[in-house]
Computed example of a mutant assay.
Amino acid sequence: MVAPRDDPGRVLGAARGRARSDDGHLVFTPAEAGDPLGGRDAPDRNRRPGSRALEREAARLEDAGAVVDEITTWIAATDETPLSALDFDDLRARHETLAAHRERCAGLVRQRQAFLGSATSRGGEIGVSHRSLIPSVYRDFPVDHPLLATVARVDRTCAECQRAVRSHLVVRG
């Protein structure tokens, strides 16, 4: 699954202060986010919002990764049986399972959008907007939102599989 870099400590290197990217969005640096690795053992109230935001991002990626892995494992396992070898009831069950997987993908997208619209804060401090944090975390990735791109690919694969199953259902129906 896509993760914010291999080492969260690299996300916020030695630079200090707040900077703006070429498109005018804020780019977070260690001074803003705190030390994401060094504060792990500290009580939650002593860590900076940026550090907590990165931890929340990692947790969201892990949760979404589990769902994506489950769906793609199911697709790989069921792809071993040709559709022509399935009876009508098995085809219908496969179609329903694919529909459920697509709904799970839609749920991941809704959760992701809600997360991006939220912020992590501490007490009276100004919070770290997750939408503003994302460009800094994923600036070296080929896409701006790798989790959303991954979920879209999985959903597209489920839709293609569903169309193939539906074609077999129509022929046999």
Rank of each mutant, 00 (worst) to 15 (best):
P142Q: 12
A77Q: 15
D87A: 11
L147S: 03
D41T: 14
V67I: 12
S121N: 08
V128G: 00
T150K: 05
R60F: 13
S136I: 02
G173H: 05
F141V: 03
W74I: 03
M1S: 13
T150F: 01
V68P: 01
R131G: 00
I134Q: 04
G24I: 12
P142G: 08
A100I: 02
G124L: 11
T29C: 10
D69I: 01
S132K: 04
R10Q: 13
E160F: 09
E55D: 15
D90F: 03
R104F: 01
Q113A: 14
L86Y: 07
D22W: 10
T150I: 03
R47I: 01
E57G: 01
G65W: 04
L26P: 00
A77T: 15
R94L: 12
L86I: 07
D63H: 13
I71L: 04
A159V: 07
T72Q: 12
C161E: 08
P8S: 06
C105M: 06
I71C: 02
D35N: 15
A58T: 10
G127E: 04
D155C: 07
G107N: 09
G124N: 10
E160D: 15
V154E: 01
I71A: 00
I126A: 13
L83R: 10
P135L: 07
L108A: 02
A42V: 06
A15K: 14
T157W: 06
G50I: 03
G65N: 05
T78Y: 05
E96N: 11
P30K: 13
T72A: 09
R60K: 13
V137C: 01
T78E: 14
A19R: 15
R104D: 03
P135K: 05
R102A: 10
